[in-house]
């Protein structure tokens, strides 16, 4: 399967990538990692790109790491639409102090607009 994972720069993004790498190794998927432009994130786009490359190298998984500029949701869906992807993977939301699952506007946009299957990683 040809998988595209979209990442911001949060700890949740790291978790999403780790789980996606594990899955890629287990089933032999083709993986592309897209680092999105989210200036408010904990890690900058460059830092996230470097960290993603390190995690892939450490796991010995061969994957393209690209960066996408502009609005994160629409740039990711647009990229997925242009390529031959079977599945789009994104983070599955954050937890509020109370423990409520919160899905942000990017998640909502991707779920409502992506032409592919979308996987939310928890």
């Amino acid at each position: 399967m040809n998988v595209l994972v979209g990442l911001g720069g949060s700890d949740e993004s790291i978790k999403t990538l780790r789980q996606t790498i594990d899955r890629t190794e287990a089933v032999g998927d083709d993986l592309t990692v897209a680092v999105l432009e989210k200036p408010e994130s904990k890690r900058s786009q460059e830092e996230m790109q470097e960290e993603a490359a390190e995690l892939l190298t450490a796991a010995d998984v061969d994957a393209d790491v690209i960066t996408l500029e502009g609005d994160p949701g629409s740039s990711l869906v647009n990229y997925a639409e242009q390529g031959e992807f079977d599945q789009l993977v994104i983070g599955g939301g954050t937890l509020s102090p109370m423990g409520k699952i919160q899905l942000g506007p990017i998640t909502e946009f991707v779920l409502l607009n992506a032409p592919t299957t979308v996987k939310l990683v928890r």
């Binding site: 409520k100 919160q102 899905l103 942000g104 506007p105 998640t107 909502e108």
Partner: peptide, 9 residues
């Protein structure tokens, strides 16, 4: 009052 943030929640 509703704040600016709006998605599924």
């Amino acid at each position: 009052e509703a704040t600016g943030t709006e998605s599924f929640e």
